[in-house]
Design a protein around this nucleic acid. Sequence first.
DNA 1: CTAGGGTTAG
Length: 673
Amino acid sequence: MSHSNALAHFLRHVSFPPDPHLLPTALKSCPALPLARALHAAAVASGVAGDPFVASSLLHTYLRFGAAADARAVFDGAPQKTVVGWSALAAAHASRGDADGAWRLLEKMRRGNNGPGGGGGGVEPNVITWNGLVSGFNRSGRARDAVVALARMHGEGLLRPDVTGVSCALSATGDLGTEAIAVGEQLHGYAVKAGCRLDACVVTALIDMYGKCGRADEIVRVFDESCHMDVASCNALIAGLSRNAQVSETLRLFREFVAQGVELNVVSWTSIVACCVQNGKDLEAVELFREMQAQGIEPNTVTIPCVLPAFANVAALMHGRSAHCFVVRKGFLLDVYVCSALVDMYAKCGRIRNARTIFDAMPSRNVVSWNAMIGGYAMHGEAKNAVRLFDSMLMCKQKPDMVTFTCVLAACSQAGLTEEGHRYFKEMQHDHGISPRMEHYACMVTLLGRAGKLDEAYNLITEMPFEPDGCIWGSLLGSCRVHGNVDLADVAAENLFRLEPGNAGNYVLLSNIYASKKMWDGVNRVRATMKDMGLKKEKGCSWIEIKNKVHMLLAGDDSHPMMTAITEKLKQLNIEMRRLGFAPSTDFVLHDVEEQEKDDILAVHSEKLAVALGLISTSPGTPLRVIKNLRICDDCHEAMKFISGFEGREISVRDTNRFHHFRDGKCSCGDYW
DNA sequence: CTAGGGTTAG
């Protein structure tokens, strides 16, 4: 209905001349600001605007539409200042995050307003005034003020906190994090004293608070004591356990709720999907998302950005596309969270152009949207595009954050834009006031390393204002591999082994550097250390999507149903590659000897298995997209180049950092990674 | 016929 139609409709219902008893009802359901102004004008014209009920309703309606100036005018012009009006204005300040204004208004109300049009004597705040402050502060993220408001209601207001105030203050307390546990416990005490600790809302808020303060034990205790199955408290329990990394327990409880017939809603399902995604259980998340829809629960604008990273992580492009279709059908393309997640999904699934199309069509963007797109370009090695987009971000007056600079610096370091990288590292600090964090230094080490300036990279590390972590030394070690610098590699490795003694990948990398220099003593020494420490190379794992199904392939695992055909194809590929001059490289040195003796096929890296499966399961010319959990090795990288050439396929492999697009025997990374 | 609350989120 257009506004003018709505106006006609409403005016019929307020029966002229406007009735002071009907106007508040009309205002309560008034759908738009112009209509509220029209009703206001009608009230003034007929002389009922001074009625305290009409004035309060007008005040609330204006605040509902965010028309603060109109609201203020109504309040200032009202002949009597009631507690209703004061409360509404104070709550409005609080929910805008204007704590000073809210507290000032509270004092003014008690003192009495003697200004022009003032109503004389002071007015004491009531429970609703205080709760309005608590709620407003909570919504605007002013958690401390919210708790103060509740305490003052109890202390100087001599009012007993009720269900509303306690629930709302608990919610605010959770936002303060673990240190606020004492405040949370005090609020729990209020709930006990007020006799509302078993109230459904209070229970939910308590579970939420304890969950956010890291007290998994208390969550379960409060839930068990409440003894009735309220869906909101079940949801709070799931979210709370998930937040505290109790993934298997969360999943078990969720299954139990399903079995007990708890009427789970879209929030419940969204929470459990999010739980899986945040804990690396992507395939489970995909399955639960499917199950949710089978149960007749429709995903909303929160569910979609929760589940999309799961599709992105396993490169389930078809699932991602069908989610995109759903988004279009439901009109969710207006939601900035949904679109940012779509941009990220397409980029991580290898469709950087589709990502850009979504990005360009977005009605509005926030810093996350820009970061997703810039990060996407970085991941694809398209540094020029990343840098160009960063420039337009600044032109659009969007403030970059530290994630933005991580993306920009990563793009520069991967593409060898050494000068630009240096410039952005300086600009970040001087023009944008962002001091570099660990990840920025890691990018700079990679940047310098790529340019062959290994000593400069080492100096940067020693001059860092804080203790470098494993990523930093890992970047240096990676650069040493490319440039064959054994001396510096030893230094980097020594630090890495100290910081990450259990990370097998570091030992493998060092061993490969020795092997490339034929320093077999070093290779054997590293192998012995690994054996002593009981470290096994992390199992390589790759995913490939074929005809809507995601296949997972593990190195050294022959359980895939198509294994015989895969083996056959690999043999063929090996023969063809060798005929074309392919020489296997050194990365095999750390494969278990026993495994290799059993059967060569068990020593094949997972990405080769995935590509072989892709080649035999799709028609000639179909591009293949593979995702891998580890960094791609030299041997596979070289093999992929050959295969892309003689099979005439585009093959993209996303490893831990970036995309490798293989085509006609070449890789988009220019052989540097 | 006027004022207040809880759970999911890049």
